[in-house]
Design a protein around this nucleic acid. Structure first.
Length: 270
DNA sequence: TGCCAGGCCGAAA
DNA sequence: TTTCGGCATGGC
């Protein structure tokens, strides 16, 4: 199907934004996106026209929500005043096209546990190995194979050698413990997603290997609480250099997480 | 080669 | 409550 979007949708920006780790560029302005057990191929034709490998039913069922098409990112950007906050204004301008994906919570949880203290290429590699070892083999719209993100039972079923193959280092027991919690029903992510943000954060922080930063990322990129503001090594640098007097969280609520993402990409790029 | 990476844990102070 | 060493491994 064809999709027309005026503004604020740049798959190339989203692919490298550090919120998703499985997007794969397979051609000029063409990406393969596995999510929710499906796989979308998206290609940009003109500046505002995209060709999608799915039909409208699948788009409405999965991808519209995944891309967060219900939010107006142009309006979110326009809340920033150039004179009041020049740095964030420039970050928003440069990052026009970034969106906060509404991703599978389980996948986001495991991905960000894996992400700690590692750079993005290394994170992608580990996740890809995990998917190959424990995910289901399927075919995309062009007939090429891909692997789904493994569910908690599949992760639990991995033996020690297989886990070691993922090169997770000390993080391997973290994902095994998380998988056990979810597979046993002790942690029900479906039920949790109906709770308040405070309750969700408290539960996430109780998991082994989940601290403030990882919890914030899962809140923002998985539970889609757009006001959560993950502070990693990059954002620490931003806060130190651009906001020595403190960051105005209240002014930018309830979209602190969106602005954080603009700043993250902008600062990494410059 | 050495430093850094979308940090967290556990012990010590 | 805050501080700090240790941690597995890969990317650059």
């Amino acid at each position: 199907m064809l999709l027309q979007i005026r503004d604020d949708f740049r798959p190339d920006f989203i692919a490298d934004s550090g919120q998703c780790f499985r997007w794969e560029q397979i051609g000029e302005k063409k990406y393969r996106i596995p999510a929710f057990g499906e796989c979308l191929i998206i290609r940009q034709n003109a500046f505002d026209t995209f060709e999608l490998s799915c039909d409208e039913e699948e788009y409405d069922r999965i991808w519209r929500g995944y891309f967060d098409m219900g939010n107006d990112y142009s309006a979110i950007r326009c809340r920033i005043d150039e004179d009041e906050d020049g740095f964030l204004f420039r970050a928003c301008e440069a990052g026009k096209g970034i969106r906060i994906l509404d991703q599978d919570i389980w996948e986001t949880l495991i991905s960000f546990i894996i992400s700690q203290n590692r750079n993005i290429p290394a994170i992608k590699k580990s996740i890809e190995i995990l998917c190959r070892l424990a995910g289901e083999k399927r075919f995309d719209a062009e007939g090429n194979t891909y692997y789904t993100f493994p569910g908690p039972e599949a992760v639990c079923a991995l033996n020690e050698e297989a886990v070691a193959e993922c090169k997770l280092g000390y993080r391997d027991r973290y994902i095994v413990e998380a998988a056990k919690s979810v597979a046993s029903g002790k942690l029900d992510l479906e039920v949790l997603s109906g709770e308040s943000s405070e309750e969700v954060e408290k539960t996430l922080l109780s998991l082994l290997g989940v601290g403030k930063k990882v919890a914030s990322c899962v809140m923002l990129f998985g539970f889609h609480f757009l006001d959560y503001f993950p502070i990693d090594t990059w954002i620490k640098k931003v806060l130190a250099s651009e906001y020595p007097g403190g960051y105005p969280y209240e002014r930018y609520s309830p979209y602190n997480g969106v602005y954080q993402q603009y700043m993250f990409e902008y600062y990494r790029r410059i």
